[in-house]
Design a protein around this nucleic acid. Sequence first.
DNA 1: TATTGTTATACTCTATAACTATA
DNA 2: TATAGTTATAGAGTATAACAATA
Lengths: 150, 150
Amino acid sequence: MASTTPTPRTTANRPDPLTLEVVELIGEVVARFHQDYEEAAAEHALTGAQARLLSLLCLEPLPMRRLAQRLKCEPSNVTGIVDRLEARGLVERRPDPTDRRVKVAAATADGRRMARSLRESLRFAREPLAGLSEGERVALRDALRGMLAG
Amino acid sequence: MASTTPTPRTTANRPDPLTLEVVELIGEVVARFHQDYEEAAAEHALTGAQARLLSLLCLEPLPMRRLAQRLKCEPSNVTGIVDRLEARGLVERRPDPTDRRVKVAAATADGRRMARSLRESLRFAREPLAGLSEGERVALRDALRGMLAG
DNA sequence: TATTGTTATACTCTATAACTATA
DNA sequence: TATAGTTATAGAGTATAACAATA
């Protein structure tokens, strides 16, 4: 089926109706996912950035510099976000034994509890697949893999 | 297949591996989509909020109040965003003949050009389906419809 | 000299509350 | 009285530039 061009197109070089609909659906899913995440964060008196940083630190402690890379922002911003989380006892700074310039941020026990509660309060992001059969989930998985690969 | 519970689960009430993988894939797509959008906006010296507002106004002029509802923020914020876009000649405020309290925001010709350029510079958001066959796109469409419905 | 984290600065987004002009 | 838009204010995220401590 016309596989020389990346995406099927009609005459005027516009995506075909099927592709257009899928793009729109993805946009809706993205919006729902994000809204869900922000609301869950707000319910815990966290901003989106704070929730993302805390979730990252629950996987593993990270130096400030690495945090900035993961969050795709400048290192100077991470200082403030960690400051606010540290003031609430959710995160702490630890020295790095091998390099005294480095400060490693880590989630505290309270921080991990908060992150777990946050994760559990994500409705759409956690249960987006409630309406799908196993076959549909397999198809969705394969399509998403294809998107991220392509 | 096991359709009494919303989502298949293993013993400890945790989602099964397939569901977990799909959730993770959706998260990655959401992240890519958003990053793509923000970068495209930045390339045009727009913030994300400005780009979203401008894109909305390219579909139809809207009263300030309605804009706030669409952007899911307070009306007072819209004032500033429209101010900055208006200062750059991308948006204008028009009076509403039927209600003198209302100001209708509308994209200018320059604003529409900017929005079109913005739309065209979205790589992943515009061409997320490059790697998928028609059959995969149909499967993806159906799965996404099911997600948003369920 | 280069790197890590921080500070200082400026801008934008955000919500809240008070204000104005209409209705 | 109620509504549309604005202003004032304060907190948070963001990028840039300059800085101290360390490598």
